[in-house]
Amino acid sequence: MARKTKIRTRMQGGKVEVLILVTHPMETGLRSDKKTKQKIPAHFIQTVDVALNGKSMASAELGIGISTNPLLGFRLNSAKNGDKLQVKWKDNQGETGVIDSKVDL
């Protein structure tokens, strides 16, 4: 299924804040389907990487404690308008996403 990813940048606390929203079920693997009593298999994003102009600036490892449609915020020490941002994510079922964006303050 195609995932939507939104990336937004803004100045916050003197830094450049990057907000990333991915539409993803973040299924824990602990829930069961009410009707069939079958376990719903785990499906969640495990790694996220944020690169600025091709250089990795921040990354995260996520578990099932992160909510559905995860919203992640990082703050970069310096970045200017028009700098290239690339966000990559990968989930536990091998699904990946690569999203290109630009710093727009």
């Binding site: 606390g13 830094k15 804040e17 907000l19 973040m26 824990t28 602990l30 944020v50 250089k55 990795s56 600036m57 921040a58 990354s59 995260a60 490892e61 996520l62 578990g63 099932i64 404690g65 992160i66 909510s67 995860p70 919203l71 992640l72 915020g73 990082f74 703050r75 970069l76 020490n77």
Partner: peptide, 29 residues
């Protein structure tokens, strides 16, 4: 890294921020 004590699996996530500022935000279950 963020831990939720009473969750079955407490570790929610870890952000690696060597090249970034000391800030991490998210939404947790």
């Amino acid at each position: 890294s963020v831990f939720i004590k009473e969750n079955v699996m407490p570790l929610a996530g870890r952000a690696n921020l060597k090249n970034a500022s000391g800030f991490f935000s998210t939404r947790i279950k």
